[in-house]
Simulated scan of single mutants.
Amino acid sequence: MPTGVAIRDVREQLFDAAERVLLRDGPSALTSRAVTTEAGCAKGVLHRHFDDFDGFLAEFVLDRAGRMAPQAFALLEAAGTGTVAGNLTDALTDLFDSVAVAIVPLIIFRDELRARLRRTWPSGIPLLAEAAAMIGSYLTAERALGRLTPDADVETLAPTLIGATHHLFADRTGTPPQRETVVRTVNAIIAKTLP
């Protein structure tokens, strides 16, 4: 791209390019050159908008974590409808069919990225922590509606559901799990909390 040509929504264009590279080629292929090539812009564009590549990646991760709000709202709205296991299965499948499953190894892979994220996100992995909060809010609503037992330990159930489901989806190069596998996992985890 010639110098001096304005690019609209540079951050979003670069974030979308990073997501495509990450999903297609994995975390080890995510470099500043790969991102700018995918975005169709000069490498200097990234460095004009971000301090360095780890700064770019930290903002990318936080941006993607922030995009979970509509999914969290939809799941909360589903409380009291369908089945608890069905609603959880849909939400967890949507979550791990997304870029979230690829971001987790990226964060684990890059020490400086983890350090940057700790400045604004003191514990946990941002996408997984947001997902646990989303699941926790939903389970709390279902408990209030009497669709979970009054003693259902939502604070333990939410991260357990996230961890178990992430394990099912963790191999990004393999075949995603069948819905029945996710349903069986969810049911095994919540079985004792159903009235």
Results as ranks from 00 to 15, higher is better:
131 A>S: 14
65 A>V: 08
158 A>Q: 08
66 G>M: 06
191 A>H: 15
186 V>C: 10
102 A>D: 12
16 D>G: 14
19 E>V: 05
146 G>T: 07
9 D>G: 10
10 V>G: 10
28 S>Q: 09
1 M>E: 02
1 M>I: 01
37 T>I: 00
144 A>F: 10
82 G>T: 11
70 P>I: 01
195 P>K: 12
139 L>I: 07
194 L>W: 00
88 L>R: 11
113 L>K: 12
87 N>L: 04
148 L>I: 04
109 F>M: 13
154 V>H: 05
41 C>E: 03
144 A>G: 15
27 P>W: 06
119 R>N: 03
117 L>V: 05
134 M>D: 05
27 P>C: 12
13 Q>E: 04
16 D>I: 01
163 G>K: 00
51 D>H: 11
83 T>P: 13
70 P>W: 01
165 T>P: 14
158 A>L: 08
116 R>Y: 11
113 L>N: 10
74 A>V: 09
24 R>C: 02
18 A>C: 13
98 S>I: 00
145 L>G: 08
13 Q>D: 03
193 T>R: 07
186 V>Q: 12
179 R>W: 11
28 S>V: 13
45 V>L: 14
63 D>V: 10
24 R>P: 00
57 L>V: 10
109 F>G: 03
177 P>Y: 00
100 A>L: 04
96 F>C: 07
125 I>L: 11
91 A>G: 14
108 I>L: 03
117 L>C: 06
56 F>C: 08
38 E>H: 02
147 R>M: 06
174 G>Y: 04
151 D>A: 14
191 A>D: 11
103 I>Y: 04
72 A>E: 13
87 N>P: 02
173 T>P: 04
191 A>G: 12
88 L>E: 06
94 D>T: 08
180 E>P: 00
179 R>Y: 05
1 M>H: 09
98 S>P: 04
63 D>S: 15
42 A>Q: 10
133 A>P: 04
27 P>N: 01
144 A>K: 03
97 D>P: 00
97 D>C: 04
170 A>H: 06
170 A>F: 07
16 D>P: 00
132 A>S: 15
82 G>Y: 10
51 D>M: 00
33 R>Y: 07
118 R>H: 11
78 A>P: 08
96 F>D: 06
30 L>K: 07
149 T>Y: 02
142 E>L: 11
52 D>M: 04
117 L>S: 06
122 P>E: 05
191 A>I: 01
161 L>K: 08
139 L>A: 11
160 T>H: 10
84 V>C: 07
23 L>V: 02
163 G>I: 01
152 A>S: 13
45 V>P: 07
98 S>R: 03
103 I>E: 12
101 V>D: 08
184 R>Y: 06
144 A>W: 00
158 A>I: 05
10 V>E: 12
51 D>W: 04
10 V>F: 04
73 F>V: 13
195 P>H: 02
110 R>E: 06
131 A>W: 00
146 G>K: 07
124 G>A: 02
46 L>D: 00
40 G>V: 01
156 T>V: 09
157 L>V: 03
109 F>L: 09
139 L>C: 12
30 L>A: 11
147 R>E: 03
175 T>L: 01
118 R>S: 15
88 L>Y: 05
95 L>G: 15
33 R>C: 01
148 L>H: 13
